[in-house]
């Protein structure tokens, strides 16, 4: 088992620390002065309606782009803390394809649609130097199995899969390198309700079993409740409320959170 006990993790300090993250697009504010700690094994949900800045924040946290202001520190496996925005591009790319994962809402953005499911999953292994076809194949097969894919379709193109299956391939592609931190942008968005439910189940199981840390952006409070330990509510680029997921959803303090929660409950 690769997971640490919660106590051990706490001793090492937070996995990811963001301080004063601000980014705007011309006049429009993306996110403003967001500060957060993410602990090993913790799943943080970020909720808010579209335009609230949650996707901008996710992109800043995952260093997909570098914000106008703010700092991002990451606890490396070596025990050192790295300033992610100050890293060279080679180092950052390496981090992104080994220790981190990013699951896009649209599988097209996270998969190579022109190569097979197997190659999609194996890519990260090859990018870090795996050169034994049989061994790569074995790991790919193992991971496609863990995301409950039909192994007979390992050589099919993603275009031949349903949306839910594509999402499973994308998840396997991200997890095959054994990352410690995964970012997810509406991972179940755009899927049928029943497909969504099974995928959520799978995600919850995987994050638990692997002791993964994750930041999940969603507009769906049910998804947030199911997956996240802690919740941040965003509105107009700012964090208006945060706390333990159950606490925030059961006893919202901020008027906007109350509105969000009640609008779900009434439907």
């Amino acid at each position: 088992m690769t997971t640490m006990s919660a106590q051990e993790a706490r001793d090492d300090g937070p996995l990811l620390t963001a301080t004063g993250i601000s980014h705007s697009y011309g006049d429009r504010i993306g996110c403003r002065d967001v500060t957060l700690d993410l602990w090993p094994g913790e799943v943080l949900g970020v909720v808010g309606e579209s335009g609230s800045g949650k996707t901008t924040l996710l992109n800043c946290l995952s260093a997909r782009f570098i914000p106008a202001a703010g700092a991002l520190n990451y606890l490396l496996r070596t025990g050192e803390t790295a300033d992610v925005y100050a890293m060279g591009e080679a180092e950052r790319r390496m981090l992104m394809r080994t220790d981190w994962g990013f699951v896009h809402q649209n599988p097209r953005d996270g998969l190579r649609m022109g190569v097979s499911a197997g190659a999609n999953v194996g890519e990260r292994l090859m990018a870090v130097g795996a050169r034994h076809y049989g061994a790569i194949r074995e790991q790919v097969t193992d991971w496609l199995g863990r995301v409950e894919m039909d192994l007979g379709r390992i050589d099919d193109l993603p275009t031949q899969f349903s949306g839910g299956m594509q999402q499973r391939v994308q998840i396997a592609r991200n997890l095959v390198s054994g990352p410690r931190l995964v970012f997810m942008d509406e991972p179940t968005g755009g899927l049928d309700v029943s497909v969504q439910a099974r995928l959520l189940d799978l995600l919850r199981g995987l994050t638990n079993d692997l002791g993964l840390s994750a930041v999940i952006v969603t507009h769906d409070l049910a998804v947030a409740r199911l997956l996240s330990h802690r919740l941040m509510v965003m509105r107009r680029g700012e964090v208006v409320e945060q706390g333990l997921t159950d606490q925030v959803l059961d006893d919202p303090q901020h008027a906007y959170t109350q509105l969000l929660v009640s609008s779900v409950l009434q439907t």
Partner: peptide, 17 residues
Amino acid sequence: GLADYGVMHVKLYEDIA
């Protein structure tokens, strides 16, 4: 620049598969 050549092996992997 980054010696980011994994994708080349992806192509070879596909051939073998």
